[in-house]
Design a protein around this nucleic acid. Structure first.
Lengths: 223, 223
DNA sequence: GTGTATTTGTCCGTATGTATG
DNA sequence: ACATACATACGGACAAATACA
C-alpha cells in the first residue's frame, strides 16, 4: 500500500536528473516543498536525497540548498578480496607456499623495531598467481608469531584475528625485477601489477603488504 | 550530545567490534534492546547499524538479526577524477593536446557502426602525464561531433554534457608499445599503468577510454 | 562583524510493512 | 501460519550551518 518508499523517490529524482529536468549547478526546491510535491514526509525525501548526494550527483549545503553536481566525482568501489577467495571464485585450485619468514628491521616509516618479514607465493591451478611480500608488526600483533603461516596466508590469518582502524590501498605498475620475473614465470622486465596495502591501528602499524601480480591481472569495478 | 548521535553510536559499536566484544559470526542483541541500552530511539540505532553494515562489518537479515561479518569484504572507494583536476590538484599547469580525431569502426563489442576515435595527450607542467585513446559513440551522443575537442578534453565535455549512466573501470599494467613509450617519454618496454573506462546508457555504448599513465602513477585509496 | 532567517541534519516515538526462521 | 526482527514511513521538534541583510 505504501506506494512511496525513499528508494522510489530516489529513482524518480534520478530520472529527472538524467532527463536534465534540473541542469548541472541548478538548485532544487527545498525539502519541504519536494516532500509535499511527492506526497511523502520530509524525512523520507531527506533520505532519498542524502543517498543521491552520497553517490555524488547532488551537493547539499545547509541554508544554501540542494544543487545538481556540476562535476560529479565518479567513485568506483573496488573489492579487496582474500586471494584464496579470488582464486576459488574463478574455479581454480588455490595453493599457497611460504618462501621466507624471518625477523628483520622494516623501513623506518613503519617501525623502528624488528618485525616479521614474509615472502610467499600464491598459485591458481599450479600457475603462479601472485607474489606477496609482507611486514607484520609483532608488537601490535604478538599472536602472529605462533600463527600457522606455513599453511594459511598471513592475509587470511590477519583478517580473522586482528581488528584494524584504518588502512590504505594502492595500485601501481612496474617492471618486474629478475627475481620476481623468475618466481612468477614471466620474461625479464615484464610489466607487473602491484597492489599495496597498509593497515594501522591508532598510529601503530599492523601490517604492510605488497602483492605482485602478473600483467594479466586486472582490478575491475562498477562505476 | 544530541549532535550526531547515530554517528557516536556507530563509533561505539565499531569499538566493541574491534575489541571482539562480539565475535565474528555472533549475533548482536536486537535493535530494540540495543536502543534501550544506549538510550537512543530505535531509528537512531537503526541508522548506526545500517551504516556499519554498508561498510561490510555487519550482516543484517530480517527476522534473523544482526551478525558480525565473518569475512568482512574490504571495499576501497577510489575517486575517478577528471584528469585536469587531478593535475591541478598537484599544483601543476595542465595542458591538453589532441593528436588524432577521426571516424572509424570500433571493436564489435561496442558498436557496429563507425564511431569517433580520439587520441590525446595530457601534460602536467609540460611533462607527459597520460596518453588517452577513446571511442565515442555519435549515435548516442550526436553533439560530440560539434564539441570543441581541440580545446577541451573529451572526458570533461562528456561529464558536462551527457547524463549519468552505468559504467566500468578497470586498472591494469602493461609494457608500453614503442609508440606509447615515445609519446610518454619512457624507455621502450617500460611498465605503464592503464585505466580503462566504459560508460553505457541502457545497453547503448557512450564512450570507452583507455588512459595510459607512466609507471610513476598510482591509484590510492583509504580502506 | 553581527544578527537573522533559511535550509539541511538529526532525533524521537509510534506505527506499519515485509521477509523469514 | 505465526512470531520475530529488520525496513521504512510519518510528523513534530530542535540543532547546526551559513547565506544574506
Amino acid at each position: 500500500m505504501t506506494r512511496h518508499s525513499w528508494n522510489s523517490i530516489k529513482d524518480l529524482v534520478m530520472q529527472k536528473l538524467n532527463a536534465r529536468h534540473w541542469l548541472p549547478g541548478e538548485k532544487l526546491p527545498n525539502e519541504e516543498m519536494m516532500a509535499r510535491d511527492y506526497g511523502v514526509a520530509r524525512t523520507t525525501l531527506n533520505r532519498a536525497l542524502r543517498e543521491i548526494a552520497k553517490e555524488g550527483y547532488l551537493i547539499r549545503r545547509r541554508k544554501a540548498g540542494t544543487f545538481v553536481a556540476t562535476h560529479p566525482v565518479r567513485r568506483a568501489v573496488v573489492n579487496i578480496p582474500i586471494i584464496r577467495h579470488e582464486v576459488e571464485a574463478s574455479d581454480k585450485a588455490y595453493r599457497y607456499r611460504l618462501l621466507e619468514q624471518k625477523m628483520r628491521l622494516p623501513p623506518a616509516k613503519l617501525e623502528t623495531r624488528p618485525c616479521l618479514y614474509l615472502r610467499a607465493m600464491h598459485y591458481a591451478d599450479d600457475a603462479a598467481y601472485g607474489l606477496e611480500e609482507r611486514w607484520i608488526n609483532p608488537h601490535t600483533t604478538p599472536d602472529i608469531l605462533t600463527a600457522p603461516l606455513d599453511r594459511m596466508s598471513a592475509n587470511e590469518w590477519l583478517v580473522l584475528n586482528t581488528p584494524f582502524s584504518s588502512g590504505l590501498v594502492g595500485f601501481s605498475a612496474a617492471n618486474a625485477t629478475d627475481e620476481q620475473a623468475d618466481l612468477l614465470g614471466l620474461r625479464p622486465d615484464a610489466a607487473v601489477f602491484i597492489v599495496n596495502r597498509e593497515t594501522w591501528q591508532d598510529e601503530a602499524f599492523i601490517t604492510s603488504a605488497q602483492i605482485i601480480y602478473t600483467n594479466t591481472y586486472r582490478v575491475e569495478s562498477q562505476l
